[in-house]
């Protein structure tokens, strides 16, 4: 098996797992959002790695170049980055709103407060 040929994919997967770990294991809501954005960028890395052609250049048509990298993946990721910042902003806004309402942003404390409210 070719290690160098798949190294990009493996780094993308490792980043995705770091993100997954942060989302599942960490209790702080902002930390979860950081993990979510790590996961997102790992997907970007996977796509751009798939689109790369060795010896290619950026997909702007110019004389003297014949090999270009795949423009389709670039388009998909370009829009995905802008959407990712939009989702992150909504998530942060929700976190701020939760902090105002509950006074904490750790998910176990929020759960405890919810349960206490249910019992009343």
């Amino acid at each position: 098996m070719d290690v160098l040929g798949h190294f990009n994919y493996w780094v993308a997967i490792a980043l995705a797992m770091v993100g997954l770990y942060a989302v599942t294991a960490r209790g702080h809501l902002i930390k979860k959002l950081i993990g979510l954005s790590l996961f997102q960028t790992s997907v970007f890395l996977l796509f751009i790695s798939i689109g790369k052609v060795s010896g290619g250049t950026a997909p702007i048509i110019a004389e003297g170049f014949t090999v270009y990298s795949n423009p389709l993946t670039h388009v998909l990721i370009l829009t995905a980055i802008v959407v990712s910042v939009a989702t992150l902003a909504v998530g942060l806004a929700l976190t701020v709103a939760i902090k105002r309402t509950y006074g904490t942003e750790e998910d176990d404390e929020i759960e405890a407060l919810d349960r206490a409210e249910d019992e009343q």
Binding site: T41, F44, I48, S49, G51, K52, V53, G56, T57, A58, P59, I60, Y68, S69, T73, H74, I77, L78, I81, V82, S84, V85
Partner: peptide, 14 residues
């Protein structure tokens, strides 16, 4: 990785 447009967006947004 040849994705200049993406790099631009990432630098500005990220």
């Amino acid at each position: 990785l040849d994705a200049v447009d993406v790099a631009f967006t990432e630098a500005a947004v990220g």
